[in-house]
Computed example of a mutant assay.
Amino acid sequence: MTTPPLYPIGDVARRTGLSVSAIRFYAEEGVVKPTSHTDGGYRLYDVEAVARLELVRTLRDLGASLEDVRRLLADETSLQDLATTHLVIVERQLRHLKARRAVLRTIVGQETDARRISLMQELVSMSDEDRERLLDEFWNEVTDGLDVHPAFVEHLHGMRPVLPEEPDSEQLQAWIELADMVRDADFRAEVREFFHTAFASPKSTVVTSPEMLAGMEAHRVAQIEARDAERAGVDPDSPEGKEIAGRLLATLARLTAGVTGREPDLGELRRSMTETAPEVDEHARRAATRFGVLLDRYVTLTETISGRPAPDFGDVGASDEWIAAAVSAL
């Protein structure tokens, strides 16, 4: 019967990539003991012991503690359970490293004092619950006492980002900027003043009802269709142009009826669209423009964090001339 080969500690070190002192340490700690000793007391290791030392090195490189390794080799835990535990640790460390990278890139890209560095590290290290709490505090403050439909307040609260589990550097930098923005007292005061001024009308509750919000969205979609048609070279008096004009007129009529409480005169509404924008549409334009000036950066950052394309507030709707021509052709 062939005797299994035994390797002296120097050969084992070369095979495993471990230092001689590390192999001695693992032997003394009872992690991987030598198979036998020479008459002179030198350690000898068989193939199985060498394989166990190679596993020890791999696990230690992956961050496993000595106690974890000892438990695994003693069959007190499985390799899968150990790997699962350390995968969670590694992923957490990776998120922290990405967060630090985002802070460092932000520092490199702009002049930053020590106080702001500490603030950025705090913002990027927030838990999901902390992020939600910060945004709730922001929207609660700017909408407090606002005389609008509750659904509108809920809609505003929904204007928040969703930071993915593995955000990239751009998303983390966007979160730092957004969190810093909503914590700024001046920004909160300005947003609050905008909403309380924009919705000071006695009809604000009606205008912000779910039905009106749905009507505004339908009108916005029709405006985008008109914009795309004009860019595509569609003649306003063509069948397609007239169909889009019909949707613009219909959606605007529903909005006007919602505001006034009565059905509008379609002839008058059509004439107003071919001359100057009707009052409700002009009011919406002014409100949208001011909203864009004030909150377009907030929305852009929100979409960047969530991995969605940012909207262009100044790029909605066809030209007044195209709309007037299309409506005139009805």
Rank of each mutant, 00 (worst) to 15 (best):
R131P: 00
A185S: 14
G215S: 14
V153N: 09
D147I: 07
V207K: 08
L172Q: 01
I117T: 14
F194Y: 12
H96Q: 14
M212R: 02
E165L: 09
D144N: 12
A218R: 09
A174Y: 00
L156Q: 13
L135E: 09
G109C: 03
S204P: 10
R188Y: 13
A179K: 02
V221E: 15
G145S: 09
P150S: 07
R220H: 15
S127K: 04
L104E: 13
D180Y: 00
V142A: 03
S169F: 03
P202L: 05
H219F: 14
D113F: 05
G109A: 12
F195L: 15
H196R: 04
E129H: 08
Q110F: 01
F152T: 06
F194D: 07
S201I: 05
R133Q: 11
I107G: 01
S127E: 10
T143C: 14
G145N: 08
E154R: 13
L163I: 05
H157D: 04
G158N: 11
W175V: 01
H157M: 11
H219T: 02
F194I: 08
E154F: 07
A174V: 00
D168N: 11
L146N: 05
E137I: 03
E165I: 02
K98N: 08
S209K: 07
R160E: 04
A99V: 03
A102W: 01
I117W: 05
F138T: 01
L119V: 06
A222I: 06
S118R: 10
P150V: 07
R115K: 11
L135G: 03
E137H: 08
D128Y: 04
E111I: 05
E111N: 10
D128A: 10
D184T: 09
I117F: 13
Q121M: 15
D180M: 03
R160W: 09
L146S: 04
E193A: 15
E166P: 00
L146W: 02
L97S: 08
R95V: 00
E111C: 06
M181K: 11
V103T: 05
A218E: 07
L119T: 10
L172H: 01
E193L: 14
E170T: 11
E122C: 09
E211V: 14
P167Y: 00
M159L: 15
R100Y: 01
R115Q: 14
E193C: 08
E132A: 12
D128L: 04
E166Q: 08
V103P: 00
E122T: 11
R115A: 14
F195A: 05
M181Q: 13
A222F: 05
T205G: 15
V182D: 06
S201L: 12
A218N: 03
E166T: 08
L104C: 09
T106V: 02
L163P: 00
E132G: 06
R115H: 13
M126Q: 14
L146Y: 01
F199N: 08
W139V: 14
V148T: 15
H157E: 08
D147H: 09
A200Q: 09
T106I: 01
L172P: 01
